[in-house]
Each structure stands twice: as C-alpha cells, then as structure tokens.
Design a protein around this nucleic acid. Structure first.
Length: 274
DNA sequence: AAACAAGCCAACCGCCGAAGG
DNA sequence: ACCTTCGGCGGTTGGCTTGTT
C-alpha cells in the first residue's frame, strides 16, 4: 500500500516547536469548530502545519482535558503493573490513567520508570529479575510468582466468559482477584499496592471523549473546567450512560460490586459475564 | 565560568487498520 | 478486490535544560 506523503515532503509546511501564536490559532479554531477533519484543519485555521502535527499538538499539549505535572505513586504503580501484562501498549495504559496521554506515559516510562526498575534489578521488558543479588532475586521471584498465579486464575475465569478474552478482560479479573485477596500488604500484587484510582472517574474519562469537543469548548469559554469535571463525576455516580459493551466498562462494573467493607463481591461481579 | 554529559520531553516518522469510493 | 485517505499508534530523534566536572 502506498503511504501518503509525510509532512516534510510538502513544501511550505512548518516543522519544529510550536510558537505561542500557532497555539493560539489552533486553540481558537478547535474551540470554535472542533476537529472532525485534521487534514483540512491547518488550512482553515490558518496554520502552515500538517494535520498530523496539529492533532499531536492538541492531543498531547493544548487540550484542557489533559493533566500535566509529576506522576503520582499510584500512577507509577499502575503503569508498571499494566506494562507487565500488556507491554508497550501506551494508548491502552493511558486509557487507564485518567487525563494522561500515551506520549506522556511513554516518555515517563523511558526516562524514569525504566531506570528505576533496572536499579531495582528488574528487567523492564520481561519484568523479571536481572540482578545476581540473591535477596533481590528472591523477592522479585516471589512477586512474579504471585503475579503469575493471579494471571492464570484471571485467564481461567476469562475463558468462561461470553466476551472475547483479551488482555483487558484478564486485567479486569486480576483487579477483582487481587482486591479480594489482601494477603500481603507489602506485595506489589496486594490491594495496598494495586492502583487505587477512581475507576468511576476513569470510565467517566473514557465516556467523556466522545463528547469532548463540546466540553472543551465550554471549558475554554467559561473557564469552568473543574466545575464541569465535578458535574460529570456526579452524573456518572448517578448511574448515567453505562452499558457493558467493552472491557473498560467491565472494570467500572467491577467497582460497583465493592461491598460495604471495601471488598469485592466476586460472585456477583463475575456473574456479569456469564 | 566553561565544557561536557545526562536527563527530559515535544515533536517527528513510518507503519497499520478502518472506512469509503 | 483494489486503492486512497485518514486517524491512531509506538519508536525514535533532536534540542533544550539541568547537573557535574
């Protein structure tokens, strides 16, 4: 298949860092008109850029939806644990971290987390021990064994589901299993180390993306981004708009089966898939 | 203070799959 | 069935910043 010409082959298109003036133009255009067609957007917005460049700039930097700044400990744990399951699927990982972009997570992994894992004697690709230190090995092996056991159980449960078995389904099951087995609080597979992000908010974000443009435009115009987030969170809590159509929704559903003590009712949650 | 190294991250590149003609 | 267009993804680069000698 022939690929379309990349930006550099189109004479007159600008490359490199965006200027404040370009940002202003892009924000103004997207706010007013949305971004249904990135290809034609630069011309209409008066930008000497290719559509891809505009899209990247908006998604990774200009959108008011994204969260910037340091990653929290919980976010780091989420990245590490999900990466152990699915590898460099940055967009999938980003979907589990509300308001973080895949590019940001990828950068954070490459510049920060990867080095930390290596320093801990863990191979960042295989997530297995690389150190000769016996104690470190034993701890890491123990954790890997715990993970493997959880994974196998999750896969076994997934295989009995009507839905297609894939990484997200397995991961959803792992959530439930680990949250139900609070055995070792110092283990990376225990509830205390497992990501405690607000799953409702995560799903809120996923659902949000479809109606994002109007939301963003409203936020920019009214300078009430936080108010909108709160409003939407409340709507989600009130139970609007969920049906079990994809694996992300399943994760949300699992959250709904947390009992009064904060533990999961596995029988009820897995009944969802039967 | 200058030179160099390392860290960081925005942005680019090439590829892929979906959709539509 | 084939081709083109487009959005999206992951890998990589290059330039700016910060730290070290």
């Amino acid at each position: 298949m022939r690929t379309r010409p990349c930006c550099r082959s189109v004479i007159g298109l600008k490359k490199g860092p965006w200027t404040p003036n370009e940002d202003k133009k892009l924000i103004a255009y997207v706010t007013q008109n949305g971004h249904e067609n990135w290809h034609s957007l630069p011309t209409r917005a008066g930008l000497q850029r290719c559509g891809k460049s505009c899209r990247l700039r908006w998604i990774n930097y200009l959108s008011p939806y994204i969260k910037r700044g340091n990653f929290s400990l919980e976010e780091d744990q989420t990245i590490i644990q999900v990466h152990a399951l699915i590898g460099n699927k940055w967009s999938t990982i980003a979907a589990l971290l509300p308001r973080r972009t895949d590019n940001e997570i990828k950068n954070h992994w490459n510049t920060n987390i990867k080095k930390r894992l290596i320093n801990m004697g863990i191979d960042p690709i295989t997530h297995k021990p690389i150190s000769n230190n016996k104690d470190k090995d034993n701890i890491a092996i123990k954790h890997m064994t715990q993970w493997e056991n959880v994974r196998l159980e999750a896969e076994a449960r997934s295989s009995s589901m009507l839905i297609t078995t894939n990484n997200n389904a397995v991961y959803s099951n792992m959530c439930a299993i680990m949250l139900a087995n609070e055995d070792d609080p110092f283990s990376p597979t225990s509830i205390s180390s497992f990501p405690s992000w607000d799953l409702l908010t995560a799903a809120n974000d996923l659902n949000f993306r479809e109606g994002l443009l109007s939301f963003e435009a409203d936020s920019i115009n009214n300078n009430n981004y936080n108010n909108n987030m709160e409003t939407n969170d409340q709507e989600i809590r009130n139970g609007y708009g969920f049906n079990l159509q994809d694996d992300d929704d399943i994760m949300v559903a699992l959250e709904a089966f947390r009992d009064g003590n904060g533990k999961y009712n596995l029988d009820a949650s897995f009944a969802l898939f039967e």
